[in-house]
Design a protein around this nucleic acid. Structure first.
Lengths: 234, 234
DNA sequence: TTTGAAAGATGAATTGCATTCATTAGTCAA
DNA sequence: TTGACTAATGAATGCAATTCATCTTTCAAA
């Protein structure tokens, strides 16, 4: 049915190479035009091929865009492995928050795509994206669970809720940035989140009130001990 | 240019009536098919008119959908006026959280539309939606500011961040629901959020537990020490 | 060095929408 | 009753995504 006006074809590549080419082209186009304005034709042109060819490698446009995000997401997951080295629950929370904000700041367009298009789509519920997303927030959950297990955190609020507070706050704060409403300070936000979550969950108040109380109590005990042991007690 | 095969026309209405009709029809169709699958033709059919007519009342499809959401949003805002009656910062926070969750639970499809389509779109940055959204989160901001002003909350974390934690958490928790991943408990979530935020921000630890615990421990140690050292110890 | 599948690449045609606009038909004031 | 005003109409258009019959390359076997 279709009559052809044949021209030179693009060089033939292995499936993997061509796929990688298209993904790279798509990523480039997305980062330039914003994913909402990307046309399949743009991506094809950037990849040096023709629209129809893309459909030999991807189900459809959305499938392609999802795969672009997945490549990027895997990159980000591979980068950070510092968390186990960090000590202290509050420091861990701060680190997680700061790292997420860093990612969003470095790739706003892809972040926007992720938050807008991938997260809510029920058709992609079972794809790698959700696995990755889960992996991504699982750490936070684990930090909370550990802190509860050790008695550092109250057990009266579910760890999942704490995780949602942390990641939800980051997202909410991020939207303003993605909408172009000015910049944000990674340190300020990650400090704030970690502070509120930590103080809100900690069984031992970090406040100086209690420090003073403890110091006073120790002093009284020292007085008793001194009396018991004689004047030599330090 | 266009040749007509004229049929009976829909009855003529005032601009306001026809607009309201279309909005109602759109809302009905959205709630049945999910807004992602709505066709202009569906809405027209539901309203008993023809596609072209819609464009006499709305700029385009998106404009129409936005207006649907705005109507709904105004309804919700009009419903709740209890906040000023509620006493106690923690109770206010809980009330705000619970109310938002209630809205989302009662109209999941419209909530989804709001979160997905309205919030991120830069083309609608200046519409009434953003005004309403602002109004909606402003309360939370005010509650925090008041608590800081009265010395009830620490001033070391910005009220805006606290607001983001509350609303961000709700959103994050809500996505699972909107994706169809089971139900959620309004009470559990709003309690949890209010608890963590309150404890995380309060200058006075809410629990006398630790103070009492420390005092009791010291008293016991003092008793032991006294027993050891003789009756003369205070 | 041919040759002939097999598989990749092509782009014209198709599809599925939203959107436009020339035309038709109610409505109502004069 | 009329005519002018304006709402309603739906065929035509526009614009992307997507399909698929056809063309090209590649490469192993003869």
């Amino acid at each position: 049915m279709a009559k052809m006006t044949p021209r030179k074809q693009a060089s033939r590549l292995s499936i993997d190479d061509r796929t990688a080419d298209i993904l790279a082209a798509a990523r480039e186009v997305i980062s330039v035009k914003g994913y909402e304005n990307v046309l399949v034709a743009d991506i094809a042109r950037q990849a040096g091929i023709v629209e129809g060819t893309i459909y030999r490698y991807f189900e459809n446009k959305r499938d392609l865009l999802v795969k672009v995000a997945e490549v990027w997401f895997n990159e980000q997951l591979a980068v950070d492995s510092q968390l186990p080295m960090i000590h202290g629950t509050q420091n861990k929370l701060r680190h997680i928050a700061a790292r997420t904000l860093q990612i969003i700041k470095s790739e706003p367009v892809l972040s926007r795509f992720m938050l807008m298009e991938l997260r809510p789509d029920p058709n992609y519920r079972s794809t790698a994206f959700f696995e990755m997303n889960r992996r991504f927030t699982r750490e936070t959950l684990q930090v909370c669970k550990d802190a509860i297990a050790s008695g550092e955190f109250h057990a009266d609020v579910s760890p999942a809720l704490v995780r949602d507070m942390l990641h939800g706050c980051i997202e909410h704060r991020t939207w303003a940035f993605l909408r172009g409403e000015g910049d944000f300070s990674i340190d300020e936000i990650s400090d704030g989140i970690a502070t509120v979550v930590y103080r809100g969950m900690a069984t031992q108040p970090a406040s100086t009130d209690n420090a003073a109380r403890i110091d006073a109590a120790v002093a009284r005990l020292e007085a008793v001990a001194t009396r018991l042991g004689g004047p030599s007690a330090a």
